[in-house]
Amino acid sequence: MNYSRLLAVLTAWALGSAHAGEVTVAVAANFAAPMQAIAAILEKTTGHKAEIVIGATGRFYAQIKNGAPFDVFLAADNETPEKIEAEGLAVPGSRFTYAKGKLVLWSANPALVDAQGQVLKTGEFRKIAMAQPKVAPYGAAAMEAITQLGLAGRLGPRLVLGESIGQTFGFISTGNAELGFVAMSQVLEGGKLKGGSMWAVPATLYQPIVQDAIVLTRGKNKPAAAALVTLLKSDRIKDLIRSYGYEL
């Protein structure tokens, strides 16, 4: 055994561990699964750890304004990070688009949602879920879609509103709502539908869901925050993000 080489490797590892840091990331619920995978890659390749907090974009905005201890914010829209930057709560020039989301109508029942979304008109369900439009961009997109389809009045009494797209997915997966609007990233794995039935809502029915990330003031000069941003912009991670149904 080459003990000199072993000692050098162990010394390098120890030095890397000593300089490894942590970044606290506020992540829109639609991006929870990709972010978990990215956090694992971040730790494996840099030693830095990501503490992930998942929620609704609108609620994160209120928390950040009130001094929540986040370093990086991955929103489900581009307007909120833009406001945060304009209000002096983030590192100027650090905002960038990391993904473009897609809205789907999904049910845990593999026979319920047809490929054209006609189930919305036939009404063969009791409850339909969506995220709260006021705080969740995917909820706003869902409301825009059903309005464009002329179904807002008909579906209104059946709506179940989740605080985030994550809670909305929970309503549907547990059967509290037979179907609902979620992010494509929540129902895909390796580019394939994990289960149930899905209709990809045509992009013409809602405004593009452009998702921006930004480094908050607390994350300035933090090596872990810089490493996460660099990773998010890498080709390796872009391919991973695409596998969840996002566009770039």
Rank of each mutant, 00 (worst) to 15 (best):
Gly191Thr: 11
Asp212Lys: 03
Glu144Asn: 08
Val27Phe: 02
Ile41Trp: 01
Ala129Leu: 09
Val210Glu: 12
Arg158Gly: 04
Gly150Asn: 11
Leu248Ile: 15
Lys134Ile: 06
Glu22Ala: 04
Glu163Ala: 12
Ile54Ser: 10
Phe96Gly: 12
Ile128Glu: 03
Lys44His: 12
Met35Phe: 03
Glu189Tyr: 11
Lys49Leu: 07
Phe31Met: 09
Gln207His: 13
Phe125Ser: 13
Leu74His: 07
Pro81Ile: 07
Val104Phe: 09
Thr97Gln: 15
Tyr244Asn: 10
Leu248Glu: 13
Lys49Gln: 13
Pro34Trp: 03
Lys192Tyr: 11
Leu179His: 00
Thr204Asp: 13
Pro133Gly: 11
Val23Cys: 01
Ala86Val: 09
Glu43Tyr: 02
Val229Gln: 02
Lys233Trp: 05
Gly55Gln: 04
Phe169Asp: 01
Leu15Pro: 00
Ala213Pro: 06
Ser185Cys: 06
Gly190Met: 12
Lys44Tyr: 06
Met130Ile: 14
Leu42Lys: 00
Ala12Arg: 07
Lys233Gly: 07
Ala136Gly: 06
Tyr3Ala: 10
Ala33Tyr: 09
Ile64Leu: 03
Gln167Phe: 12
Asp77Leu: 09
Ala39Tyr: 00
Lys83Pro: 06
Ala33Gln: 14
Lys121Val: 12
Gln63Leu: 14
Glu79Thr: 13
Asp71Val: 00
His48Leu: 04
Ala226Asn: 03
Val53Thr: 11
Glu85Ile: 11
Phe73Ala: 03
Gly150Tyr: 09
Gln186Cys: 07
Gly88Cys: 13
Trp13His: 06
Glu144Phe: 01
Tyr61Thr: 07
Pro202Met: 08
Val187Pro: 02
Gly67Asp: 08
Gln118Asp: 14
Val201Asp: 03
Tyr3Cys: 08
Ala225Asp: 03
Val53Asn: 08
Gln116Thr: 15
Arg59Asp: 14
Ile38Ser: 01
Glu85Phe: 10
Tyr98Val: 09
Ala203Pro: 02
Ala115Trp: 08
Lys222Cys: 02
Ala145Thr: 09
Asn221Trp: 05
Glu82Gly: 11
Val215Trp: 01
Glu178Thr: 04
Gly175Asp: 07
Ala40Met: 09
Lys134Val: 13
Met130Cys: 09
Gln148Phe: 04
Thr97Pro: 10
Ile38His: 00
Ala37Phe: 05
Val113Asp: 04
Gln207Pro: 02
Pro92Ala: 10
Asn30Pro: 06
Gln36Ile: 13
